[in-house]
């Protein structure tokens, strides 16, 4: 049980932060279908930095500090990549679905092109001790083991960032202004809010969180292998955001639920009671997606979807 909950946390952490990133973008009025691409790009940049730092030996034995630096760098790269989406959606008034899809394809292609060119392989494997656990403590009681044993630094970073940013978007002036731009940008503009700036802020934060979540994913779930895919986690995060009704608490609940559902497939072969059922891994892999569909069908009527989401802001419209 403890093992399953530990695994759930590992899967839930990237989903949690990336879904929050999606929320930031959409609450500011831009559909962010490029979460997957931003995760891939941020994670890849992080992996390159991690390798370079490991080779140079800059941090010596202080792996956790290095992990933190790389996480921040991944967030920065994700934010930079998301500027492409901001430019296309905000300045060029492009269809945001197409822009997002293009960026997903671009991220995968760029990562493949650079990985193959620089490392002669489509996958970058980081040194094994890089994805080391923060705390290894088997002596503590089981409840604490869930959070204290075999946990990663990235999980703590993500939880802290999640709480702070959730408060920020609800309680600060800028956060409220940003949300106004997602509901009624013309009204927001009429009281002097710069809609373009707010939407840029929303998408950039979104990209940063996706980049951070991307590196957390490759460092934890995929054991330090960076490649041109994060296994659809970005899209799942998007679904979790819709599941959570564009609200942090709902997202937190959704991320835990889907983290749990998502981890069953990969761990099904190492849990006896699941193994005894005789169902293949594919069955467990399908469950989260089917649950998403059912939930969406049931909740679509009372959607908290931002009103102006996906509509380019036009100053001339009233």
């Amino acid at each position: 049980m403890v093992f399953l909950l530990q695994k759930t946390l590992i899967y839930a952490a990237p989903l949690l932060i990336v879904a929050l990133g999606g929320m930031f973008s959409e609450r500011s009025g831009v559909i962010n279908l490029a979460l997957e691409g931003e995760m891939i790009f941020g994670a890849f940049c992080g992996a390159i930095l991690a390798r370079a730092l490991a080779i140079s030996g800059a941090f010596g034995s202080n792996i956790q500090l290095l992990f933190l630096v790389v996480l921040l760098f991944s967030a920065l790269c994700g934010a930079l990549f998301s500027l492409l989406l901001s430019f296309s959606a905000i300045n060029m008034k492009a269809d945001q679905t197409i822009g997002g899809t293009a960026l997903n394809m671009l991220a995968a292609a760029v990562v493949n092109a650079f990985a193959l060119s620089l490392f002669n392989s489509e996958k970058i494997q980081m040194p094994a001790n890089f994805s080391g656990y923060v705390i290894l403590n088997n002596d503590i009681p089981p409840i604490l083991q869930i959070f204290g044993d075999k946990a990663y630094l990235s999980t703590y970073v993500i939880v802290i960032a999640f709480v702070l940013l959730s408060i920020w978007i609800y309680k600060t002036k800028t956060g409220m202004r940003m949300r106004a731009c997602g509901e009624h940008p013309q009204a927001a503009a009429s009281v002097g809010i710069n809609v373009f700036k707010m939407r840029y802020l929303g998408t950039v934060i979104s990209g940063a969180l996706a980049g951070l979540g991307g590196y957390a994913y490759i460092a934890t779930v995929s054991n330090g292998t960076a490649e041109a895919s994060v296994g659809g986690m970005g899209f799942l995060a998007l679904a979790i955001m819709i599941f959570g009704n564009w609200k942090p608490l709902g997202i937190a609940l959704g991320a835990l639920l889907f983290g749990f559902l998502k981890c069953i497939g990969p761990v099904s072969s190492s849990l006896d009671f699941l193994k005894n059922l005789g169902l293949p891994m594919y069955f467990y892999n399908i469950i989260p997606y089917v649950v998403v569909l059912i939930v969406l069908a049931l909740t679509s009527k009372k959607s908290g979807c931002p009103k102006a989401e996906g509509i380019p802001y036009d100053k001339g419209m009233r």
């Binding site: 492409l84 296309s88 060029m92 492009a94 269809d95 197409i98 822009g99 899809t101 293009a102 960026l103 394809m105 671009l106 995968a108 292609a109 760029v110 493949n112 092109a113 193959l116």
Partner: peptide, 16 residues
């Protein structure tokens, strides 16, 4: 993969 990069860029620009 350069060809894939170009194709992705073409869709990106198609949005404009």
């Amino acid at each position: 993969y350069i060809a894939d990069v170009i194709i992705a860029l073409i869709i990106y620009f198609a949005g404009f």
